[in-house]
Each structure stands twice: as structure tokens, then as C-alpha cells.
């Protein structure tokens, strides 16, 4: 006699079920880094899916596994999504074998993106190390698309070597809304660009902190140098936004892997202002 008296609550959403998407296009952006253009199979989802720059998806392949990956296309682009994936582990190795027409599975979007709405009217500085350009590219393209809403855009991108500079074919478009500067750790002799660390680009453009927000994504080793330099330049912690990477399983604040002190990177992050993480020494490692 199963009990039927208990009030059945509103149907629960099962967060762990992914939706199917198709790979439309694959491009190799750099050694071990590929760019995927996707669209949802479900036409309703394809039309209605919305997100903010800086949010991520839980991307999976059936039989392989699941990982968080930032969306690198702008929210202004409708009907399709783009991901930029570095070959690093179980899932990403398998993603790199995908061909146009193959399926992958996604759920999300999750987390807090860059608060672009609050940045309306401001100059924006994007500082990207390596594949950190991927989530920033979503915000850059969004800002480029909504050009009138923002002041000047400055993109500073550092990479291991010229081969690893990402989205190079888009710099001309970005330059129409501002400035793009790149720097590499090392380069062959024919490289005519900058060699050095990314803070050298900050010295080069010497940005003024007034009415400016900074958006950062990159390897943790880059953070302390960049933040130190921004502080010297007079930027306020509340105007600097950083996207953090952590181990995640659920994306919805349940599995506990991504916790940094008292915040969930998946829910309160991945984008946080430096003000939000002030005093949390382990956040920026």
C-alpha cells in the first residue's frame, strides 16, 4: 500500500540530463586547441538558449565523461554556440576527435558571467593568457557587436609562442572598436611582435583607471603580476573581474569540488570581482 497521501511537489528539474548538440564546424586554432561551432538538435532550445559572456557549459560525450567549458561565442549570436577546447584530459582528448556532424551533449549555462550590463558606457580592458582568451572572446565579440554601448576596447593577449595566439583572424574586426596587443613568451627569429610577460602590455598601453573595467582570464601564475600592476595603475578591486578555473562535476553547487573558501566557483563564479575574493588567498592560485 504505497502511500499516496503525501503531497506531490512541483515537478523537479533533473539538472544532470544533458541536451544533444551537433558539431557544425571544427577549426584548429593552435597546437592542441580546437574551436567548435555547435547547434542544439532541439529547435526550441536552439532558438531560445540564452547566456551571458563568461558562463560555462557542462560538456560531455556519452561514454567518455563531462567537463566544464566556457562558451566563447557572444550571447548576441543566436542559433549556434562556440567552444574553444584545449586537449588536456579524458574528455578534451575525445572532443578533439570530433568531426562535423558528430554529437556532443551539453547542459547549462551555469555560473555568473561578466557583468557587461553594469559596464555600459565604460572602457573595457581584456587581459587574456593563453586559452583564457576563450571566455573573454565571448565578451569582446559582445562588446564589439554592441559597440555604441561601450567606450574603447583594449585586448591584451599573451601566449606561449606566436603559434598559440588565438583568434588572430578576428583582431582586425576588434581593432575597429579599439586596440589589440599581443605578446609571447618565446618566438622564432622572424617574429616581429612583442616578447615578454603580459604585464609589459599593460605598461605599453598604460590604461587610466577612470571609468574602466578590466576582464581577466588566464593561468593562475599570471594573476598576481597582472593584479599587482593594475593596483599600481590605480584600478579599484570592484572594477576588476576575473574568471576562475576549478575542478567541477555538477555545475550547480552540489558536488563541492569547486569550492574556494566559502564560494562555489560554479554558482557565484566563475567570474568574480577582485573585491569579492579579497582576503581569500587561495582564490588566485
Amino acid at each position: 500500500m504505497p502511500d499516496k497521501t503525501r503531497q506531490k511537489e512541483a515537478p523537479l528539474r533533473n539538472e544532470y540530463l544533458p541536451d544533444q548538440a551537433l558539431v557544425l564546424e571544427v577549426r584548429e586554432l593552435a597546437p592542441g586547441i580546437r574551436h567548435f561551432l555547435l547547434e542544439f538538435v532541439d529547435p526550441v532550445l536552439r532558438e531560445n538558449f540564452s547566456f551571458c559572456s563568461g558562463q560555462f557549459l557542462q560538456v560531455s560525450l556519452l561514454g567518455i565523461g563531462e567537463s566544464p567549458i566556457s562558451i566563447c561565442s557572444p550571447p548576441t549570436q543566436k542559433g549556434s554556440l562556440e567552444l574553444c577546447v584545449r586537449e588536456a584530459g579524458n574528455l578534451t582528448q575525445a572532443l578533439h576527435r570530433l568531426q562535423p556532424g558528430d554529437s556532443l551533449w551539453v547542459r547549462g549555462p551555469y555560473g555568473q558571467g561578466f557583468p557587461l550590463v553594469e559596464m555600459a558606457g565604460q572602457d573595457l580592458i581584456f587581459i587574456a593568457g593563453g586559452i583564457g582568451l576563450a571566455p573573454l572572446r565571448s565578451a569582446i565579440d559582445c562588446a564589439v557587436c554592441l559597440n555604441d554601448e561601450f567606450g574603447e576596447l583594449t585586448v591584451l593577449h599573451g601566449a606561449r609562442s606566436p603559434d598559440f595566439l588565438l583568434f588572430t583572424d578576428e583582431y582586425e574586426t576588434w581593432r575597429q572598436s579599439g586596440r589589440v596587443e599581443t605578446i609571447v613568451d618565446e618566438a622564432p627569429p622572424d617574429w616581429r611582435g612583442q616578447i615578454g610577460v603580459i604585464t609589459a602590455l599593460l605598461d605599453l598601453v598604460n590604461p587610466a583607471p577612470e571609468n574602466t573595467s578590466v576582464l581577466i582570464c588566464g593561468p593562475p601564475v599570471m594573476f598576481s603580476f597582472v593584479l599587482g600592476r593594475l593596483k599600481e595603475l590605480g584600478f579599484d578591486d570592484s572594477r576588476i573581474f576575473i574568471s576562475l578555473e576549478r575542478h567541477m562535476r555538477c555545475g550547480v553547487g552540489k558536488c563541492e569540488h569547486c569550492v574556494v573558501e566559502s564560494f562555489y566557483t560554479c554558482r557565484q563564479g566563475p567570474v568574480l570581482s577582485i573585491e569579492q575574493i579579497r582576503g581569500i588567498s587561495s582564490a588566485l592560485r
Binding site: 565523461g65 562535476r249 558536488c255
Partner: peptide, 8 residues
């Protein structure tokens, strides 16, 4: 209650 996931 923390967990991980694995495909089989």
C-alpha cells in the same frame, strides 16, 4: 554528500 561522476 560530495560526489564525482564517471561514464561506463
Amino acid at each position: 554528500y560530495c560526489f564525482y561522476t564517471r561514464d561506463e
